[in-house]
């Protein structure tokens, strides 16, 4: 198993110093064209991928088919309706072939954008909340306990997916 921490010669940690990652990567990338270096940097600078990698290094298997945390269910249903609404507007915009018919949809399009941005903000807050728990995972790891980290990773993956979905809709709305 590739250890991205070793590749960049930084200590294994769930919250490594970003500047150290950057400077170490830069120095090494200039010396060699090793493909793993870029990936190491990309993984270690992304909190979700970092947790995933850290767990893999501890030989902990990720949860399979995890379900949405009950505390995130409200967000999920809100997101679902906001995205469905946006898709409908995007569909209308795609069909509209004139500036006037698109303009008639602009009020709804702006409303959809604002709603998505609002949702995305909550998604990011939820993500940050979970990333803040990282230091507690390291403590539990010392006693061989990983269930908190594993469960959080499952939830973070959901949140990340939602963030991507929001982002995609926003970008598409922006095209009109």
């Amino acid at each position: 198993m590739t250890n991205f921490f070793t590749i960049l010669e930084i200590p294994i940690s769930l919250s490594p110093d970003p500047e150290r990652i950057e400077s170490s990567w830069r120095e090494k990338a200039k010396e060699s064209g090793e493909a793993d270096l870029h990936e190491a940097r990309a993984v270690l600078t992304d909190p979700v991928r970092r947790l995933d990698h850290w767990l893999a290094l501890q030989n902990v298997e990720p949860e399979r088919g995890s379900s949405i945390d009950p505390e995130m269910m409200d967000l999920f249903s809100r997101l679902h309706s906001v995205l469905a609404e946006a898709d409908q507007i995007i569909g209308g915009l795609k069909e509209a072939s004139t500036a006037l018919t698109r303009a008639l949809l602009s009020k709804e399009a702006i409303a959809a954008q604002l709603a998505i941005q609002e949702c995305m903000k909550t998604v990011r807050e939820e993500k940050d909340l979970r990333i803040e728990r990282y230091s507690s995972f390291e403590e539990s790891a010392e006693t061989g306990k990983f269930d908190g980290a594993v469960a959080t990773l499952g939830q973070l993956k959901f949140l990340q997916k939602w963030e991507q979905q929001c982002q995609e809709r926003l970008l598409t709305l922006l095209e009109y």
Binding site: A99, L100, A103, S106, K107, I110, A111, L114
Partner: peptide
């Protein structure tokens, strides 16, 4: 065109 621009403008100030 100007009608469309008015609509977009109205939507912005509404929202």
């Amino acid at each position: 065109q100007s009608l469309a621009a008015l609509l977009v403008e109205a939507a912005f100030s509404d929202m």
